[in-house]
Write a protein that binds this DNA or RNA. Structure first.
Lengths: 334, 334
DNA sequence: ATTGGCACTCAGGGATAGTGAGTGCCAAGG
DNA sequence: CCTTGGCACTCACTATCCCTGAGTGCCAAT
């Protein structure tokens, strides 16, 4: 139905349109790509491609531009992920290597990705549920208030204040801390939740109210709420006239954690790329390229790039894949 | 030199221009405000105001718009901070009250401020140097790597990984932790830096290399680097055509911590408002309204709003002041 | 199936003219 | 001396028209 040449034409249209931002016509197509046929032939091909919904013309008598469906086909079958150059790989490596805390790693990653792709980058913090407890700390703030600090093996630190129903002696807090660490250290957070629920027995009766308060806050930390922390960078790249009036939608999506989470998609195996195009993202004219990243073959979170539907997919995909790999590597080391 | 009426004219021009976005002429001025003089009189006044540099015309034969200098005068002498309505105050209070961790307080504050002002809000994390050490925790990650966690009385938690030169026994780490907490607990962070430097003596000689590594990372945490953490929200409000092409500059400034810090200005006494207009901010067409906030009369950080020079100053100032106060209150409680 | 030829379409870019809000200035009046 | 009505003038903005050229669709010939 679509022979070799028609596919080549579609590929050429996507490439030209992406680089020039202008509808591409039959004449310039044969010129710029070494097609050994006449413009008229191309026109016939384009008519077919248009009929099938892969390209369209903004108005009669203008060149063609790809539709979402056209980009889809291009990404799925007509293009290859463009690998990073050696120099770029080195740059990524050295830039990420300088980061110590997890915050720093994430911050650098997101900036790096924005810079490489010249688009908006989004990075999700390593998810809690797939990592394990390294240490739990309780610190008295006031006699009736303690700070709960949870440290995971991905280096993530969660904190929450707990209001106690009764005043607490330092020893009882120390005891509670010991119990928590003894039972949870090294456990996956997902299991930890279950363990905590059955822990009340190990606490002397008079201290149970306080322990209960701590447990419930701890459970809350382990659960949904913090799962969704996202960071983004590169919004300045939106100022390019790419989006025009859709800009508001994009900016709004960026501030809505929920929407953004959905855009990054469900977790997949590490460095497998997901591409959402145009309508698939729910934001007109916007595409998202994302990948899971993780330490040691285990996906812990996602990261991605958000840009105009008309973007350089091979290049963007290459950058996202490369960054996802290196971040996984860095996290695996620590 | 500028009599009552001329000032009234300037005020009216600012108000009208802010609300309509269009140059305001002599006729509409007398209509919309109850001025008991003829348009011709107003024209004379406007000529004077223009001569003095408070207003200009975008082109001959258009109405006048305020200059930066005009806004300045308006803010300094012609307007009063608009207090929040009772309903708004209640909304602020309940919205902020739901936050537990410091992260949460900051996140809510910035979103709240963006929503109230319909502009871009920026909040600086409570500064480290003005708060004091609540607790220091050391957690082994590997035999040659520990995680340093610093907890302050504002609820802020800093973390950093430390690579040790030698492998460390659990006891030596425990000892180090005890020493650190004994010496630093309750001290202002600013003093803490000095204390740490003189601490090497208290450590047995064989453990000094490791201790040194920890100290140096700790000093780094106490110093500049983390001082500057900033969060912003409400970028979607930039999509209003307010900025036009200056938008790129604004977005870039938002991603440059250093620039943003400068915009918020030096710390002042809590809830004193600072207003920077147009060129004063270094970003064409942009103004910044900021205030310090803090617990118990002590300023700990700043927050503010960034918007087009043509903004509703009284309203924005009211919102910033109110939010700064409530945040200080919330922080003071914990 | 491919190609050259040809008539047709239509966005975009000046050029021109009309409109009206707004100005500056002046001379008269309080 | 300040205020005011009158008046000529300016100039952004809009509408209209026209033209140009890139690009198309179709057809008949190869």
């Amino acid at each position: 139905m679509l022979d070799e040449r028609k596919l080549a034409v579609l590929r050429a249209i996507v490439e030209d349109y992406v680089s020039t931002t202008e509808p591409v016509g039959s004449k310039s197509l044969v010129d710029r790509h070494g097609l050994d046929v006449s413009p008229a032939t191309i026109r016939n091909d384009m008519a077919v491609l248009e009929e099938q919904g892969f390209i369209t013309q903004p108005h009669t008598s203008a060149g063609r531009i790809p539709t979402d469906k056209g980009y889809r086909l291009f990404v799925d079958r007509l293009s290859a992920v463009k690998p990073m150059s050696a120099a770029e790989r080195r740059a990524i490596e050295t830039f990420l290597a300088g980061a110590y805390s997890l915050d720093e790693v994430v911050a650098r990653t997101v900036r790096l990705l924005a810079q490489l792709t010249r688009q908006v980058a989004v990075v999700q913090y390593p998810s809690l549920s797939r990592s394990s407890v390294r240490h739990i700390e309780l610190v008295s703030l006031t006699p009736q208030r303690v700070l709960l600090v949870l440290i995971t093996d991905t280096g993530r630190v969660e904190q929450a204040a707990v209001d106690l129903p009764d005043t607490a002696e330092p020893e009882s807090i120390a005891h509670l801390r010991a119990v928590l660490n003894a039972c949870l250290d090294g456990h996956k957070l997902a299991d930890a939740a279950a363990t905590v629920s059955g822990l009340a027995d190990r606490i002397p009766v008079p201290e149970r109210p306080n322990a209960g308060a701590v447990f419930s806050v701890l459970l809350e930390s382990l659960a949904e709420r913090h799962e969704e922390r996202l960071v983004f960078a590169g919004t300045a790249n939106l100022a390019a006239p790419d989006f025009g009036k859709g800009l508001r939608d994009v900016l709004e999506a960026l501030e809505e954690q929920v929407v953004l989470m959905r855009l990054l998609g469900e977790a997949a195996s590490p460095s497998a790329l997901t591409v959402r195009i145009g309508a698939e993202t729910g934001i007109q004219g916007t595409s998202v390229v994302s990948a899971a990243y993780g330490a040691g073959g285990q996906a812990v979170a996602k990261l991605g790039v958000l840009g105009p539907t008309r973007m350089d997919y091979p290049g963007t995909m290459g950058a996202v894949r490369a960054v996802a790999r290196y971040v996984g590597q860095i996290l695996g080391e620590s």
